[in-house]
Computed example of a mutant assay.
Amino acid sequence: MQRRFFLTASGGLLAGGLAGAAWAQTQPSYSVSMAQLQQTVAQRFPLRYPVAGLVDLNLQTPRLRLLPEQNRLGAEMAIEAAGASLRRSYSGSFDVDFALRYEASDRTLRATGLHFQHLQFPDLQPAALELLNSLGPMLAEQSLREVVLHRLRPQDLALPEGMGLQPGSITVTDKGLLIAFVTKPL
């Protein structure tokens, strides 16, 4: 009798364990394509930043790139600098990379953890380039920090929320983003 119970219980645990493993592999997720990300970011640009009456900086829409090996996104932004102190307009660019976070209050994916890479102005004099390079991190922070990259719709979350799940980890893949759903805390 005890052996039969043990075999039945073991079989039940094994079946439950296999079902749990299958659930982990088929757990709901949500994907966001690179085109969707680029489209959302484009709505915020171009931006203009006047700097102490010396120079006006105009930022164009960033070109996003996926960095799956770092689980981050990169962005290259065209920038134009003009103003009385420069005597003419100069074109350049700067690079940043950033991580992503989910903001539950408005169902958005946002840029966070910005790393400023470098600022390039091939035709600019070294002294002026040094001034702009000192502004680069601040400029990157103001233009991309917490920028919304995607907004989930209520219908995107309806099924997972009905199952007691919420957005969890965000993974950068070769095709876009993959948002895993995790169990809501009690």
Rank of each mutant, 00 (worst) to 15 (best):
R4P: 05
R4A: 14
F5P: 00
L7V: 15
T8G: 08
T8M: 13
T8D: 11
A9Q: 09
A9T: 15
S10M: 11
L14R: 05
A15T: 09
A15F: 07
G16F: 09
G17A: 03
L18S: 04
A22L: 13
Q25V: 15
S31I: 13
V32W: 00
M34Q: 13
Q36P: 03
Q36I: 13
Q38A: 03
Q39E: 11
Q39D: 07
V41S: 00
Q43I: 08
Q43K: 07
R44F: 11
L47N: 01
P50T: 06
V51M: 10
A52I: 14
L54P: 02
L57D: 06
N58M: 11
N58Q: 14
Q60C: 01
Q60N: 06
P62L: 00
L64W: 03
R65F: 08
L66P: 00
E69V: 09
Q70S: 10
L73R: 01
G74C: 01
M77I: 15
I79S: 00
E80H: 05
A82K: 13
A84R: 09
S85D: 13
Y90N: 00
Y90H: 00
S91Y: 02
S93N: 04
F94Q: 04
V96N: 00
A99N: 09
A99Q: 10
E103K: 11
T108S: 03
A111Q: 06
A111G: 00
T112K: 07
H115M: 14
L119W: 02
L119T: 06
F121E: 03
D123V: 11
P126A: 01
A127Y: 12
L129E: 03
N133W: 02
S134M: 14
S134D: 08
L135R: 03
P137A: 12
Q142Y: 10
E146G: 06
R151G: 12
L152I: 15
P154Y: 05
P154H: 04
D156M: 04
L157Y: 04
E161H: 05
E161V: 07
P167M: 04
P167Y: 06
S169D: 13
V172L: 08
K175G: 02
G176Y: 00
L178Q: 05
F181V: 09
V182P: 01
